[in-house]
């Protein structure tokens, strides 16, 4: 079964959607979409580094994004540039430096489009193992900090006063996010990762009555977007990554339709 590239693509996409659901919820709740963008753009720098040093791409992306994430969190705690400006500056610098770096490496043939928009149809068995192994690991990590991170998201002061240590939770969370980006990059590319993270969560909002429920629904909607997007890309011969994102958008729009609300009465 795994011999079929399309089945591998489906499995990879579903694995990533399952992980992206709960993470996407926290990104939406904490208003960190732009933060996620910055980390994923920095992923390109990681790719350039991996090719130059001949190391594993996923690990290099994780290292670069993770380092940047910690740096950003620590910087934003001091009153300097606004977080927004800082992110804008770093996101595009990282993207540009990555592209320039790649252009110097004339000896490797780099499929730039695949890096930017993903190449889910080229998923190997090894990629699948990394996705599911890494996915289980980051979900376990998120599950471990879930309650404390959620408390810190609702009210940082309250969490701090009652011993949930919101600063440490934030650091752990951004590191896990860097890991998710490293895993998902191959599938949807650096430009569309954030979309895959936040769109299913945004779509899940109106269907959910509680945070845990929203995380679960978000995962399921993500799976639907992956399946729908991949089949559509096969039928109409469209690029797979963007097709998944378009499917996610359609699901989000559908969630806005009146009458779909299933959460219990307020």
């Amino acid at each position: 079964m795994l011999d079929d590239f399309f089945i591998r693509a489906l499995l990879a996409g579903i694995g990533i959607a399952l992980v992206a659901g709960p993470f996407g919820c926290f990104i939406v709740w904490r208003r960190m979409a732009y933060f996620g963008d910055t980390l994923s753009h920095a992923g390109l720098l990681g790719v350039a580094l991996a090719l130059a040093l001949e190391i594993n791409v996923m690990l290099a992306v994780f290292a670069v994004s993770g380092l940047l994430a910690v740096l950003l969190v620590l910087l934003s705690r001091r009153p300097s540039l606004s977080r927004d400006a800082l992110l804008g500056l770093l996101a595009h610098s990282a993207l540009a430096i990555g592209l320039v770096g790649l252009s110097f490496m004339a000896w490797v043939r780099v499929d730039l489009l695949a890096l930017l928009f993903g190449d889910i149809l080229a998923v190997t068995r090894m990629d699948l193992a990394m996705i599911y192994g890494g996915g289980v690991a980051v979900l376990a990590g998120l599950g471990w900090i879930w309650h404390r991170l959620f408390a810190a998201t609702v009210s940082p002061e309250l969490a701090a006063a009652e011993g949930a240590n919101p600063d440490r939770m934030e650091l752990v969370f951004v590191l896990l996010m860097a890991a998710v980006i490293a895993i998902a990059m191959k599938i949807v590319g650096v430009l569309l990762i954030t979309a895959l993270l936040i769109m299913p969560s945004a779509g899940a909002r109106r269907l959910s009555g509680g945070p845990e429920q929203m995380a679960l629904i978000s995962s399921l909607l993500g799976c639907a977007a992956v399946i729908g997007g991949l089949y559509a890309s096969r039928i109409w011969d469209t690029p797979s990554g963007p097709s998944i994102v378009v499917a996610a958008l359609l699901i989000f729009l559908a969630s806005l339709l009146p009458g779909l609300r299933i959460s219990r009465a307020d």
Binding site: V28, W29, R31, H147, F150, A151, T153, V154, S155, L158, A159, E162, G163, A164, S201, A202, R205, S208, G209, G210, P211, Q213, M214, S263
Partner: peptide, 16 residues
């Protein structure tokens, strides 16, 4: 509490 965060009193009580 932001609109994006579905949070009922029951869940808030169990926050920490």
């Amino acid at each position: 509490v932001d609109w994006t965060l579905p949070l009922k009193v029951e869940r808030l009580m169990r926050l920490t």
